[in-house]
Design a protein around this nucleic acid. Structure first.
Length: 151
DNA sequence: GCCAACGTTGGC
DNA sequence: GCCAACGTTGGC
């Protein structure tokens, strides 16, 4: 099975990479956006996920791994309904479980992504408010490569 | 079903 | 602190 790649955002003031590493794993709950939910539902165990610090940081800081695919978000009003249950399914929100895989040697900044020919068209940049977005394998590889060089 | 008003996110 | 982008809500 081919590994898929994703990017999730977190405000470090709320939940930082360091918090994530300390916890060793995290249920990625509270996503209340249909496009983001679509992506959560498409995640499979073992997919790799870039961890982005929004607001304070504005950089990609580490790589996580999907350890549990989508399950009903326990923080939703009515968890457990089928997530595919119709366009108006305000319920049926889902979460996934992520675990830290490795920090990036150097964070990759938003400015670097914008300036990069490969990364300038990522969903992260095209739709800046989307909290969970897909990455193409080429984009994922590019981020890893940029993380090896000085900013 | 359209659209204006409003709230939220997130970069600057 | 401001503002742009986007989603949601509610009047009609």
């Amino acid at each position: 099975m081919t590994t898929q790649y994703w990017l999730v955002k977190s405000e470090p003031a709320t939940y930082s990479w360091d918090d994530f590493v300390r916890d060793g794993r995290s249920d990625w709950t509270g996503v209340r956006n249909y496009a983001a939910r679509l992506h959560l539902n498409a995640m499979r165990r073992g997919d790799e996920v870039m961890f982005y610090h929004s607001n304070d940081g504005k950089c990609i800081v580490g790589i996580a791994r999907v350890t549990q695919p989508a399950f009903p978000d326990p923080t939703a009003d009515e968890p457990g309904l089928p997530a595919s249950g119709g366009a108006k399914g305000g319920q049926g929100w889902v979460a996934v479980e992520l675990a830290p895989l490795a920090p990036l040697p150097r964070p990759v900044t938003l400015a670097q992504c914008k300036a990069d020919a490969v990364l300038k068209n990522t969903e992260l940049l095209r739709q800046s408010r989307l909290s969970v977005s897909p990455l193409k394998p080429t984009e994922f590889t590019r981020i890893k490569k940029l993380a090896k060089h000085s900013a």
